[in-house]
Design a protein around this nucleic acid. Sequence first.
DNA 1: CCCGCTATTGGTCACCTGGCCAATTGCTGA
DNA 2: TCAGCAATTGGCCAGGTGACCAATAGCGGG
Lengths: 212, 212
Amino acid sequence: MTSRDSGTRTRKAPTERRQEIVRAAALVGLAEGLECITLRRVADELGVQPGLVSHYFPAADALVAEAFTSATGAELDGLLPEEPAGPGHETPLSTLRRFFVLIASTEFDNVSKLWLNARHLSRYRPVLRDHVVEQELLWCRRVETLIAAGTGARLFHCENPWEAAVHILVAIDGSSAYINTSADARTAPIADLARTVAERELGLPPDTLATP
Amino acid sequence: MTSRDSGTRTRKAPTERRQEIVRAAALVGLAEGLECITLRRVADELGVQPGLVSHYFPAADALVAEAFTSATGAELDGLLPEEPAGPGHETPLSTLRRFFVLIASTEFDNVSKLWLNARHLSRYRPVLRDHVVEQELLWCRRVETLIAAGTGARLFHCENPWEAAVHILVAIDGSSAYINTSADARTAPIADLARTVAERELGLPPDTLATP
DNA sequence: CCCGCTATTGGTCACCTGGCCAATTGCTGA
DNA sequence: TCAGCAATTGGCCAGGTGACCAATAGCGGG
């Protein structure tokens, strides 16, 4: 409910408050869109005055950009953990399988919308643009690393992991481009497109990466 | 210069004036983005009062939607003419080659931006959404028809023209998703991706659809 | 313990948007 | 020709935005 707490003025450590603001902005951006990240909206979310947000982010552009990075960064860590580090044995194949399961779930819809949102808004906001480019490279590198690991372990074959990663991400981004406009006639042929592309790029038999 | 013509009040036939407004709006949307299509902006473009635009389009949403349809419709006719009808002999193969040449040129960049723009904005504007869905289906059907024609003429082979059309368009839309955020490291692997996908979908040898 | 630094308030400002409307003026059909 | 209708004007409004700033109040260091 984001209680109003009218009158109570709580003072927090700058770094903590700043992080709090970015997080709130990221949630707004993820749920309602990046253009809904306004000083007043974020302030309301935190039960705080707009001037405070303005104090930490003199230019609203910077807040939008940081919110985007925060949201997509967290999402990427959930999809493809940097350190396999998991307790159970995790192979690049199983990681890849989980990846495609996750991006196919409806939970990923908001993330698709966010990417679409950010890529368009980058046309007008240079600061956001830089963050988007950075995240695009980050996602791509993460996929590339995974492919390289799988290739090294002879789990599949791939001449050029970077190129394969780019191709897979194009398939994903292409498929999710219709997230706001999906027409029934197109959904079927698109459903497993990204996974299929991945299997071809990695020389895997069809459905190898499908959910078991 | 869009001269002001202050004072001169020219009265035009409603349908003509309406078309004029949509065209001006389409140009603004194509060049600067759909969110720049405002009553005042379009009115300025025509050297006319905002109230006039407001008169023909009581809701600004409708103008934006029609402007989008106008722009993409004209573009599609330029890329894939409905009637081959050309003077010289035009085969589905040559039409396809020209298509990939055109969408690879920088002239197509604004169209890519427009699609990205519209797909995002559809999240908030139902009227625009309907128009975008309609145009997506239109583009897809046009490609499907071309594939069916080529298959019928034994120029190439394709089990399911609709599915192939969808896949090709996903490749195109995926590639152009980065139009506002392109990073050098990604451009190379993406350059000919859509064309390559098309060649595979149609069972054509590599580079068959490349520019001669 | 209390003083000073600064996080936070609460308001103002100019700007832009879409929607609205009465008045005016140009065209057209009778 | 001329009356009437509709196209067009030119202004208004409320609501939302980012940016800015003086005053206040909480907290940590002396």
